Simulated assay, not measured.
Amino acid sequence: MAEPTASGAGAGTPTDAASGTSRGAAGLGSGPGRLLVLLYGVFTVGAASRSLVQMIMKFDRAPLAYVLSAVAALVYAFILFSLLRGGERARRLAMGCCVAELVGVLTVGTWTLVEPSAFPDATVWSDYGMGYLFLPLALPVSGLIWLKRARPAPGA
């Protein structure tokens, strides 16, 4: 069993002796994963700061919308942490969060179209993320594709 490396790979993750880095899922934040790290970082800060300000300044106006934005920020932060952490366990947890994020975007997006009065103020996921150029819908799909491709080879 391999020891953890400086790259954050956990025990049991094969390492490349020459470079000291982990192969397979440990490189979640490398290559195309770097763009996901950047976008999840931006969305974590954006959703968290927006929801915090809204909850402090006008919580009584649209509590459901503001709480949902805070939940989105937590999901984004967890996926960001998982991408940076690397390793098979982080990859699996990030995949679960991407699925939850996608379900959230589809549920809230549909809800805001069917019953707009339930959301007097928009959330990050309102109208499938239209206010954010549909990136909240594209991010979990892209994340799932990347995380599936980052799976280590069988027997590695």
Score class of each variant (00 low, 15 high):
Pro4Cys: 00
Thr5Gln: 14
Ala6Gly: 00
Ala6Ser: 01
Gly8Leu: 09
Gly10Glu: 11
Ala11Arg: 07
Gly12Ala: 15
Pro14Ile: 00
Asp16Tyr: 00
Ala17Val: 04
Ser19Cys: 07
Ser19Glu: 02
Ser22Val: 03
Ser22Leu: 03
Ala25Tyr: 00
Gly29Ser: 04
Gly29Asp: 01
Ser30Ala: 06
Pro32Trp: 03
Pro32Gly: 05
Gly33His: 01
Val37Ile: 11
Leu38Met: 14
Tyr40Asn: 15
Gly41Ile: 06
Val45Gly: 02
Arg50Gly: 13
Ser51His: 03
Val53His: 08
Gln54Thr: 12
Gln54Trp: 14
Met55Glu: 03
Lys58His: 10
Asp60Pro: 02
Arg61His: 15
Ala62Glu: 02
Ala62Trp: 02
Pro63Cys: 05
Pro63Lys: 06
Ala65Asn: 07
Ala65Val: 08
Ala65Met: 04
Tyr66Cys: 08
Leu68His: 02
Leu68Gln: 12
Ser69Trp: 11
Ser69Pro: 10
Ala70Pro: 08
Leu74Ile: 12
Leu74Ala: 12
Val75Cys: 02
Tyr76Asn: 14
Ala77His: 03
Ala77Met: 01
Ala77Arg: 03
Phe78Val: 06
Phe78Thr: 05
Ile79Gly: 06
Ile79Trp: 05
Ile79Pro: 04
Leu80Gly: 07
Ser82Leu: 05
Ser82Ile: 08
Ser82His: 14
Leu83Ser: 06
Leu83Val: 06
Leu84Tyr: 02
Arg85Asn: 03
Arg85Pro: 02
Gly86Asp: 12
Gly86Cys: 08
Gly87His: 07
Glu88Gln: 15
Arg91Asn: 06
Arg92Ile: 13
Ala94Trp: 03
Cys97Glu: 08
Cys97Pro: 00
Cys98Gly: 04
Val99Thr: 00
Ala100Leu: 14
Ala100Phe: 04
Leu102Pro: 00
Val103Asp: 04
Gly104Tyr: 01
Val105Tyr: 04
Val105Gly: 07
Thr107Cys: 07
Gly109Arg: 11
Trp111Pro: 02
Thr112Gln: 11
Val114Asp: 12
Glu115Met: 14
Pro116Phe: 09
Ala118Met: 07
Ala118Ile: 02
Pro120Asp: 12
Asp121Leu: 08
Ala122Ile: 10
Thr123Cys: 15
Trp125Tyr: 15
Trp125Asn: 13
Trp125Cys: 12
Asp127Tyr: 13
Tyr128Ile: 06
Tyr128Gly: 08
Gly129Cys: 09
Met130Phe: 07
Gly131Lys: 01
Gly131Trp: 01
Phe134Tyr: 14
Leu135Gln: 11
Ala138Phe: 14
Leu139Pro: 05
Pro140Trp: 08
Pro140Arg: 09
Ser142Met: 10
Gly143Met: 07
Gly143Leu: 03
Leu144Ser: 06
Ile145Ala: 15
Ile145Leu: 15
Lys148Leu: 13
Ala150Met: 10
Ala150Gln: 08
Arg151Ser: 05
Arg151Phe: 00
Pro152Met: 09
Pro152Phe: 00
Pro154Ser: 09
Pro154Asn: 08
Pro154Phe: 09
Gly155Glu: 09
Gly155Tyr: 09
Gly155Ser: 09
Ala156Val: 14
